[in-house]
Simulated scan of single mutants.
Amino acid sequence: MTREASGASAPGLAAPERLRRREEFLRASASGISRNYGAFKVLMAVRADDAEGAPRFGFTVTKKVAGAVGRNRIRRRLKEALRVSKAHGARPGRDYVFIARRAALTAPFADLIAQMADGLARLGRSHEADRPKKPKNRPVAP
Results as ranks from 00 to 15, higher is better:
E24W: 01
A81P: 03
A66N: 11
P16H: 01
K134C: 05
S29R: 15
G119T: 02
V42Y: 08
A15H: 11
A28W: 06
K63R: 11
A45M: 08
R35V: 11
A90H: 10
P132E: 10
S29M: 14
E80Q: 04
S9A: 14
P55V: 10
K133I: 08
A48W: 01
R101G: 05
V97N: 00
T60P: 03
L120Y: 02
K134I: 10
R56L: 00
G12A: 07
E80W: 13
R125T: 13
V97D: 00
P142R: 09
S34G: 08
K133A: 15
A5I: 00
V69H: 05
R91T: 09
K86S: 15
S9H: 05
S126Y: 07
N137E: 13
R47G: 05
R75A: 09
R75M: 02
A8E: 09
T60V: 04
M44S: 14
Y96I: 06
K64S: 05
I113Q: 15
R20S: 03
A15W: 14
A90W: 03
R73N: 06
A14T: 03
A15P: 05
Y96R: 03
L112K: 06
V42I: 11
G67S: 08
D50L: 08
A54N: 09
A48T: 00
E17P: 06
R73W: 02
A66S: 11
L105I: 12
V46R: 05
R47A: 07
P11F: 09
R22F: 07
F40E: 04
E128G: 04
G53S: 13
N72A: 08
A90S: 15
V84E: 10
E80Y: 14
P132W: 15
A81I: 14
E4Y: 11
D118E: 12
S34Q: 10
S6R: 06
K79S: 05
P135C: 02
H127D: 02
F59L: 01
R56F: 02
P16R: 01
P92H: 15
V69K: 05
R83V: 02
T60S: 13
K64M: 06
F57V: 10
E24M: 07
D111Y: 03
I33A: 13
S34I: 01
A15C: 08
T2V: 06
M116E: 11
T62H: 06
D50P: 06
G89P: 05
K133S: 14
A66V: 02
V69A: 06
A28V: 00
P55F: 07
A100H: 00
S6T: 08
R122P: 09
Q115P: 12
E128Q: 15
Q115G: 12
A39Y: 03
V69I: 13
E24C: 01
G12Y: 06
A110F: 15
V65E: 00
G53K: 02
L26I: 12
V140T: 12
D118G: 11
F98S: 08
P108R: 05
A117R: 04
V61L: 09
N72P: 08
G70F: 02
V140E: 13
R20I: 00
A39W: 00
G58K: 02
F109M: 01
R71N: 04
T60N: 06
L82K: 02
E4R: 13
L112V: 00
A39K: 07
A107W: 12
A30R: 05
E4V: 14
A15Q: 13
S126K: 06
